[in-house]
Structure formats: structure tokens, C-alpha cells
Amino acid sequence: MRLLTFIFTQTGRNVLQSWGLQLMTLLTVTLSVLIFSFFYLIYVNMVQTGVRLGEELRLIVYLDSGLTADEQILFTKKVESFSKVDKVVFITPDEAFAQLRDQLGNDRDVLEDLDSSFLPYSVEIYPHKDLKNLSRIKDFSDYLENLPGTAKVQYGHGWVERFEYFTKLLRFIVIISGSLLILTTMFMVSNTLRLSLYARQKELKVLRYLGATNSYIKGPVLIEGFLLGFVGAGIGLLSLFSLFQWIKSHFAGPSLVNLFKLNFLPWSHCTAILLCSVLLCVLGSLLSIRKFLKI
């Protein structure tokens, strides 16, 4: 108990003695956490949007016009027998024409002089969740393309590819920014604490001469590191949350932001970021103290 009292008293003294340096470090930790978690937040939302869009994904197979009704049924049954397919809907030209008219809304007049005969028979395929991965969808599409009776397969692959590419790019940015910020945080924390220890070098020497144990010297520095990591990450995450709320409230309505249902980082992710920040800062403080224990 006395050890703890002394350690906390000493921590308080140290913080007061070098508050300018400590504030700078706190700011660095806060900014690092804010930058990293900002990119991470975008990434998480992109992934969630990707999953949601993937659930709505379907492939449309346009059938050759020369197929007989029996061949069309046979084709549908063949696709249905594929284990990775959830549902198959056969669409006649009339049904397709009706859908098109609905989609055109007020512009449906353009179809007035036409009938459904220009539209082909088609099959809508809802793939199983396992298949909702760009490369697997593509393989499946190639397979369908080669089936006898297939005229064309469509699943908006250009859009899906771009989305997948953007998500990959964002993942790369998160990993790179995360790694750089980890290094920056550790470097800053260990160097700031080292500077504050250099400022107290004489005191530390005297303490060692008087018999101060490693834990007596180390304890306050580790607690400083812990506080820097905890408070810095806490402020960073709170700032991100405020920014997130501001974006949500200012960009509410029929805008791009509404296409993506924005969610803040889950508690478990926030806790993990907080713990990582604390761990990094404690490691940084351990690195800084080593030299001073050799007196």
C-alpha cells in the first residue's frame, strides 16, 4: 500500500515537473489514435456496406433466344441443382417488360409502341452466402457463361470489382497508417519520457545512491506511460465519436452518406484500440527507463 502511495505521489510530482512535455506527448498519442481510428472507422463501414450489398447481389443469366420451353426448364433445374445457389427465379419476357416499365416510372411512355418480344428469357440467381466473394462470384459467372443456352451473364461486376478494390486499398491504408502510428507513438512516448527522465537525472542518481529499488524508480514512469496511453486514446476516441456524430447530423438526408448506413466502432474495437495504446505507451516508458536503472 505504501509502495503504491509513494508511486502515485511520485507520478504526480513528475507530471507537474514536466507538464509541457507530457502535454505534447498526450497530444501525439491523441492524434495518432484519432488518425488511425478514423481510417479504421471508414474501413469497418466499408466492409459492413460490402456485406450488405453482397447480400443483395444476384446474377442474371440471359438465355439464348433459340431455346425451347423444355430446354429453358432444364437450364433452370441445372442451375438450381448447384449447391451454392439459394434461389433461382425464371423470368419471362413479359415479366421482364413489366419490371422495366415499373423501373422507368413516369418515363414509361418510351415503351408505348413496343412489346415484350425484344426482351430475352432470363434467370435470376441468388447465390449462397459462401459464394459472396468477388473471385468466387466471378468463377461462378464464368461457369454459367459456358453453360449451353447462356447468351450473357450480368451481375454488375465492374461496380463490385471497384468496390472490392477500394476496400482493399483502405485495408492497406489502415495497416500502413496503423503501423506508422504505432512506431510514432512508441518513439514519441519513449523519447518524451526519456527527456523528462534526463531532466531528473540528478534526482534519479541521488535516489539510486539512497537505495531506491528498481520498482521505486520504474513504477511512476510506467504509470505515466499507462496514463498517457489511456487518456490519449480516450480523448482520441471521444474526438472521433464527436466528429462521427457531427458528420451524421450534418449530412443527414438523401446524400451519399445515407447510402452507407454509418455505424461507430463497436465497443470491443474501441476497447482494443484503448488497450493497444496503453500497451504501446507502457512499452515506450519501459524502453526509456532502462538506462537509468544501471546507476
Binding site: K205, V206, R208, Y209, L210, G211, A212, T213, N214, L293
Partner: peptide, 19 residues
């Protein structure tokens, strides 16, 4: 290192340069 520190706790030293 730790035993040295424990030992130093049992020795009172008045240095010439005070420290």
C-alpha cells in the same frame, strides 16, 4: 542490482560534494 539497492538502504552516506 536489487541486493545492491537494499544494501545502500542500510548505509547512510554523507558525500563530500553533498549530492
Amino acid at each position: 542490482s536489487n541486493a545492491t539497492q537494499k544494501l545502500r538502504q542500510r548505509i547512510g552516506v554523507a558525500y563530500q560534494d553533498f549530492r
